[in-house]
């Protein structure tokens, strides 16, 4: 199997990677240490492998690594920090919307792509934009509540 080089901006830094043509973006990220991008269904259903590509949330399990060439990719490692969480992470914590936490990185990235595009989404808009992220613990109510509160806080600014 041939190997080829691609480069893309990852969390604000231009990086070069050697890839296998058949490799998924998910495995490329994880073998390079970006393990906040989780393995899930591997068929574009659960959203736990979500990354942001050129401003849009995508499932890295059904994107080939070569498709990221010359693009801008954001993973959860580029969003907030342990002692300084992103406002979306803070909203989820404040609302008690995190239980096992496996879905949370994908959930945060889908929400970030949504708020970056529309800082004040309606409830219906939130449900459409977040329909690709499964959570098997919370029952979604607290997640949506966190998003709605964030939307309201943006309106009040």
């Amino acid at each position: 199997m041939i190997k080829k080089k691609i480069s893309f901006t990852l969390n604000g830094e231009l990086k070069e990677f050697e890839i296998n043509p058949n490799e998924r973006l998910l495995t490329l990220l994880r073998r390079n240490g970006y393990k906040g991008t989780k393995y899930g269904c591997l068929e574009g259903t659960c959203g736990t492998c979500t990354v942001i590509m050129d401003g849009k949330a995508v499932d890295s399990c059904i994107v080939f690594a070569f498709q990221a060439d010359e693009r801008v990719i954001e993973t959860i490692e580029g969003v907030g920090a342990g002692n300084e969480p992103h406002e979306i992470q803070k909203a989820l914590i404040d609302e008690g919307a995190v239980q096992c936490g496996y879905c949370t990185p994908g959930m945060v990235l889908s929400a970030k792509a949504m708020f970056d595009e529309n800082p004040t989404p309606s409830e219906d808009y939130i449900k459409v934009q977040m329909d690709g992220n499964f959570c098997r613990c919370t029952g979604y109510e607290k997640i949506w509540s966190a998003m709605k509160k964030l939307s309201v806080s943006h309106k009040l600014r």
Partner: peptide
């Protein structure tokens, strides 16, 4: 389009 899979798939 609204019935097409989910937002991540619709995006790509």
């Amino acid at each position: 389009a609204l019935r097409h899979v989910n937002q991540q798939v619709r995006n790509i």
